[in-house]
Amino acid sequence: MSLLAGVVGVQGDVSEHRVAFERAGDALGFEVETVAVRDSGTVPDCDVIALPGGESTTISRLLRREGIDDEIREHVEAGKPTLATCAGLIVLDHPDDERVKSLGVLDVRVERNAFGGQRESFEADIAVEGLDEPFHAVFIRAPVVESVGEDVEVLAEFDGKVVAVRQDNVIGTAFHPELTHDHRLHELLLGGLDKDD
């Protein structure tokens, strides 16, 4: 029996997440199939999903149009593993920004473009809770988590700002683990699943 990993694919760096899930599966000895989710009806079949980087304004609009937003909400609320990176994190947070129709399933408030524009984008090594070695993180016009709710654990900070969080089975990062060859966060997510289910 193989696992189905759905990467929300209405816009953003979708293929990078699919490759990362495949590599993480190989590392764990799991058979992982991946699918890009561009309309409704697929998320309910997925064991794990990822919301990629991209533009949160565009992604949230298309999710609503395609009726994928409710399916993601149900997936998260059912406690199924979810990885949300950058724009994905913004899409899941509490609605604060009128330009983004976010889902409000993650108890955090996120500030968009918190470091500035592309000129201020960067890569750096950061310590992540639960990983032995530092993670080489790529921040692209990245957001930061301004405040977290009671049930949210902070996984990583950079320069005093929260850049990775965990709430139940949802991991949210301000950076892009899918842009490097380090797939430990994807492994962390898959590792919680019993492959013989």
């Binding site: 694919g9 209405v10 816009q11 953003g12 760096d13 979708v14 293929s15 990078e16 980087g53 991209g54 533009e55 950058c86 724009a87 592309q118 984008s121 960067f122 890569e123 790529v138 692209i140 016009r141 892009h176 842009l179």
Partner: peptide, 11 residues
């Protein structure tokens, strides 16, 4: 970082 930005525009 530069190619990463381009990737975020996909789709």
């Amino acid at each position: 970082v530069k190619r990463g930005f381009a990737s975020m525009q996909k789709g």
